[in-house]
Structures are given as C-alpha cells and as structure tokens.
Amino acid sequence: MPIMFSYLFMGAAYGILMIEAGFLWSYAVLISAAVYTGAFQFLFVSLLSNGVSFLTTAVSAFLINSRQLFYTLTFVDDFKKMGKKKLYMIQTLTDETYAVNCSLEQVDEEKRSIMFWVALLSHMYWILGTLVGSLIGKLIPFSTEGIDFCMTALFITIFMDQWRDAKDHFSALLGLAVALICLFLFGESRFILPTLLLVSAILVFRNARGEEENR
C-alpha cells in the first residue's frame, strides 16, 4: 500500500520535527493520534513554538482542514451504516484514505469493511511513524537543524499539484498576494490569522458577485 510508506515517512518527519522544536515525544504522538491531519499538523509545530493564541490555532485548523468536511460528505451514507465504527471513521478520514475509498469498486458490506481497515491501518502507520521519528530524533548523531524545511518542501509540492489541476489561478495568486501584504503589515509572528480571514472573505465575496452576474 502506497499509504503505508508515505505515512510512515511523513509521520517520522513530523516526529523528528517536534523533537527538534523541543517538545516531548508524548505530545508528538498525542497530536498524531488526536488531530491526525497532514499539513495542519506540520504548521501546528510552528504555531505551538511561537506560543500563538488559541484563536489563531482554531482559525488555522478550521481553514486548513476545511476540506475534510467535503470528504466526509461523500461518505455520509456509508459511515451511517457502520454503527459504532462511525465516529472512528469520521475522525480518521484524510486526503489519502479519501482517495483510496473513492477508488474502491466493492459494494455494501465488503466495501465498508475495507474502508474500516484502510482507516485503522493508515492511522496506526501515522502514529507509528511519529513515535519512531520522535524517538530516533534524539539519537541522530549530527545536528538536525534545518529539518523543518521538509514542511516547506511538502507545501510547495502540494501547491504545484493544485496549480496544475486548477482551472484558473486566481485563488492561488490571491493567497500569495494577501500573505505577502499581511507579512509586511503585521510582521512575521502575527500575519497568519489576518491573512487567512482576509483570503476567505475575498473568495466568498467574489463567488457571491459571480452568482449575481449569472442571474
């Protein structure tokens, strides 16, 4: 399974990152088990080290993870038939398991059973990766300064995927422009919250206006 390697690898990178930032391994594992998201978890390390407010954490989590809402929406009917497992299935739906679930050709009971195992194993790989990463993080003989660049690299590759798949580049360019303007206005430690709010407001406003014109 491709998920296995990517989750073990990225989980381990996350674990090393948390240790490098000075957190205990137990926090790394707790976050991987409870929050369990890719991009936001990496950002979360940096937010926590900067001691940002709970509001910034909440808004960042809300906006960055908002895509999850659209993932569970696809599987509302399947999850409902899964009884007690429903809550666990909701908690563990990610970009990767969503993609796998969408590709399943089985139906009904068989499909739901596969979905459960995909969810469980992926979650375990992610936690295991984090555990291993945060434990070996201390043993690496050379300085791991700069390992946090793996987060930048990850975001750049996701950004390039989205750029390739997008019909127009308005929202990508908007994000870049607003982020740069806010960076200069508010400074490094405080620009993320105003940027995220401003970008969502502009996107909602633009879509609303598009609706009016179509009428």
Partner: peptide
C-alpha cells in the same frame, strides 16, 4: 452553494499562504 464554491477555491489559496508562512524568515 457559497460553501461549496469556497471549498473548491480555498485549498490553493491556503497552500499559497502556507508557502509564504514557511519562507517568512527570508525577510528577516
């Protein structure tokens, strides 16, 4: 409908913001 459209447009904006966030040290 506005939520659905936001869901389509938001991810690439957010990723752009995150790339800037990661490279913010360049300025300092």
């Amino acid at each position: 409908i506005w939520l659905e459209q936001l869901g389509k447009a938001l991810p690439s904006s957010i990723m752009a913001v995150l790339v800037v966030y990661c490279l913010k040290g360049v300025k300092g």
